[in-house]
Design a protein around this nucleic acid. Sequence first.
DNA 1: TAAGTTTTTTACCATTTGGTAAAACCAACG
DNA 2: CGTTGGTTTTACCAAATGGTAAAAAACTTA
Lengths: 203, 203
Amino acid sequence: MDKPLKKPSRIQIRNRKVILEAALEVFSRYGFRGATLDQIAEQAAMSKPNILYYFEGKEAIHDALLTRLLETWLDPLREMDAQGDPKSEILGYVRRKLDMSRDFPRESRLFANEILQGAPRMMPVLEGELKALVDEKVAVIRGWIAAGKMAEMDPYHLIFSIWALTQHYADFDSQIRAVLGHDGAIAEAEPFMEALFTRLLAR
Amino acid sequence: MDKPLKKPSRIQIRNRKVILEAALEVFSRYGFRGATLDQIAEQAAMSKPNILYYFEGKEAIHDALLTRLLETWLDPLREMDAQGDPKSEILGYVRRKLDMSRDFPRESRLFANEILQGAPRMMPVLEGELKALVDEKVAVIRGWIAAGKMAEMDPYHLIFSIWALTQHYADFDSQIRAVLGHDGAIAEAEPFMEALFTRLLAR
DNA sequence: TAAGTTTTTTACCATTTGGTAAAACCAACG
DNA sequence: CGTTGGTTTTACCAAATGGTAAAAAACTTA
């Protein structure tokens, strides 16, 4: 049923990458429904039928992007180590998420668009993989709190607050730039976040 | 040039409201480009030409929603009083924003969609009205800091952090529900936010 | 109730959109 | 050199989409 059962050629590898890069640009701005194959084709400097030679259809491109995103999206949280010191582990998580907002803002917006629309394609992953990972780390944080190593608080909302604060700088970038009148908000945000979480975690 | 120069009839008032309500539902989910007039028509239980009898076109409906949104969107920040106590003023602002996320999640998502897409229609307002209001309140906060009434910090990022934390609960609702496995996250979030900002502001 | 006005429906239309068929092209390799 | 397999283009298509014209229906008011 699938098109390429053999190993992909050099041209295939290159063109798939070009298409995914173009599609990321378009999907991250307009969401799945708002994006068009013609836009992606233009961005990729390729004809529309040629794009459909490499991917089964619009949905397949979007799925490929989401799948690729998931491979790295959860890494920063996975790295949080139960054996480590709460403050440095959580600040490390914040820094890694902030780095991702700086280095991969389009991926962040792609994710935001999917969630805004009710996560029609990612809901199973959210309820499965993501929930499992969060539950695991919540247990870790509960352990730290029970051991008196950090202040008492709801670990779920601690994690939500980290997501909110860090992703905001990628997703609402245009608003932030409009208000500040300049770029580089994330660099300014880092010391602010460090102070915020330092004060929050202290017992 | 405009259609109704006279005062609108009762039917006009009712149907415009029905259309805007339906359009809010659709635009807040799919964004401007991803939403269709047919979806709005179905949601409004009205024929498409009938909708176009009340509004000039798709864009006019969207504009009407954004305009209506702006009337109340900035109110919570406007209410922040320079004469008041920093802690209660800022906590009050957080609570009002959180209330808006609970009571008007669709409006929050409509706004989020617009910003995600680079604010093509709202950029002038962001650079004008919003920036002016934020600059004013930043000056107020700087005054509080200078008077030793709260901890030192970057007031811009304090405001950004309030936007991020409060709006996250409306915009990323489906993710939060997937992870928690239940509703009512905002009710849980309120004490968390209070603790967070109490600790952040204390000198 | 009849005339005038507003509202709604029916029947369209041009463009856009996701997608396909098949011809043309091209890069090896025997 | 010519054949073979992968790649790209050209020419389409059906459905969806934003929008319009005009008739029909419903409501108002003299």
